[in-house]
Write a protein that binds this DNA or RNA. Structure first.
Length: 260
DNA sequence: ATGACTGCACTCTGCAGA
């Protein structure tokens, strides 16, 4: 099973690269974030024609998450359980069959940015992470092959950012944000990328501004967290860095986790 | 060089993103 996550920064603006990505890389499951459209405006026919089933939690202008699957989608949870999202579409979960009797539980997550930190936006970010952690704790008890994938808007460690000092006061890198990340992973989830590499400078986001891409001033904020049953099967992780170099790219690139 | 962008909407300016 090849599972990918990608914050597309508007699915309508990214339709051509999205369809090309599906055709070229053929993920079994793709989690999308920042659709920036309501369900009625989602390019469902195009995605279905590419061979994918779709479930999504849309919203006008902001947020929006989807799960695309080549295999049947058997069960869906829309919205993060236990969290009053105040109308923000940031979580969808589905149980996907692989057609051979195995199931995968997968979530597509768009965690809040949280800037500026001295505002209610930061409290909202931490509240989301607390609710996500509680739900993730409940999911572990199922002892299933589970992948919690998405844009967490958290830089876990110094090695995940080009200039730690420059990001010290940012909501993505504040100690409380990183502590929230550790509380989640410490439950027993494996950060897929860190299971295969200790290297610094493996980024998934480069700002559109100030030549961040050209100067490789990136950050790693898109993550796939694996339940123990999923981690047992992890064979490969890939950050599709080339996606940032195309025409009209998203500011995020896709990340793959392959399960044997 | 403390610069530089992109997408969206009650659009031609302001907000959000990270």
């Amino acid at each position: 099973m090849r599972i990918a996550t990608w914050n597309v920064n508007s699915v309508r603006q990214r339709l051509a690269p999205l369809l090309a990505f599906l055709k070229e890389t053929a993920p079994d499951v793709l989690c999308l974030q920042e659709l920036k459209c309501e369900e009625g405006a989602f390019p469902r026919l195009e995605v279905e024609d590419a061979g994918y089933n779709v479930v999504l939690h849309g919203q006008k202008t902001f947020n929006g998450v989807a799960i695309l699957s080549r295999h049947p989608i058997e069960e869906t949870i829309v919205g993060l359980p236990g969290f009053d999202g105040e109308g923000q579409s940031r979580y969808i979960e589905a149980v996907v069959s692989d057609g051979a009797g195995e199931i995968l539980r997968v979530a597509s997550i768009y965690a809040p940015n949280g800037n500026p930190p001295e505002t209610p936006k930061y409290a909202y970010k931490l509240a989301f992470m607390a609710a996500l952690t509680e739900h993730a704790r409940a999911l572990l008890r199922l002892e299933e092959t589970t992948v919690l994938a998405g844009d967490y808007n958290i830089i876990p460690e110094d090695r995940d950012v080009h200039d730690p000092a420059a990001w010290a006061g940012d909501a993505l890198f504040l100690p409380q944000s990183r502590a929230a990340w550790r509380r989640l992973t410490n439950l027993g989830y494996t950060d897929a990328l860190r299971a295969v590499s200790d290297a610094a400078g493996l980024y998934t986001f480069w700002d559109y501004q100030a030549g961040a891409w050209q100067k490789n001033k990136g950050i790693r904020i898109d993550h796939l967290l694996l339940s123990p049953q999923a981690a047992d099967r992890l064979s490969r992780v890939e950050i599709v860095k080339a996606a940032r170099a195309g025409e009209k790219p998203s500011d995020h690139v896709p990340v793959f986790a392959d399960l044997a």
